[in-house]
């Protein structure tokens, strides 16, 4: 079984306040695993916030319930992983491929940025929940037993 060295879990309404809460969760997560290097912390945090923000900005409710954001982050030996979910949401609408907007465009860079920051991005939809799984291979040195 894969060893989880540290983890955080957030779930709440997909609103602006959730973004700050998730960011605070990540800041506290890194305190638990100081052996994860600064570059990995920085890139992974950016990818998770981009992904969570994408849900807050664009997810539409599938029914009467408001969309909820879920972010489960785990640190495993040599792997950082986050499951960023939109609960009670419609399937994502529009292109899911990263685009390269014009230099003066003020939006549209999020997906390309996420792809540049992590090793793999996968998408799942199950039981009305959209989940993006972000994984980044980490060059962390293992703590001594």
């Amino acid at each position: 079984m894969t060893e989880v060295l540290a983890a955080r879990s957030f779930r709440g309404p997909a609103a602006e306040a959730a973004i700050e809460a998730v960011h605070n969760d990540l800041d506290s997560l890194w305190l638990d695993v100081p052996f994860v290097n600064d570059m990995d912390q920085m890139t992974f945090t950016t990818a998770v916030i981009e992904s969570a923000s994408n849900i807050v900005q664009h997810a539409e409710p599938a029914g009467d319930r408001e969309v909820e954001l879920g972010v489960e982050t785990t640190v495993q030996p040599a792997l950082l992983q986050a499951r960023v979910s939109a609960y009670y949401a419609k399937p994502p609408y529009g292109p899911m491929d990263a685009s390269t907007p014009a230099d003066d465009a003020e939006s549209g860079r999020g997906l390309a940025l996420i792809e540049a920051l992590v090793t793999t991005v996968t998408f799942e939809r199950q039981d009305g929940t959209n989940t993006w799984v972000l994984s980044r291979s980490s060059s962390q040195e293992q703590p001594s037993p």
């Binding site: 960011h23 923000s53 900005q57 465009a105 003020e106 939006s107 860079r109 999020g110 940025l113």
Partner: peptide
């Protein structure tokens, strides 16, 4: 300490 693509978009808007 942190900027995402929304923040970048705002800077570009301010530049324009």
């Amino acid at each position: 300490a942190f900027m995402d693509s929304s923040g970048l978009g705002a800077l570009i808007g301010c530049l324009k």
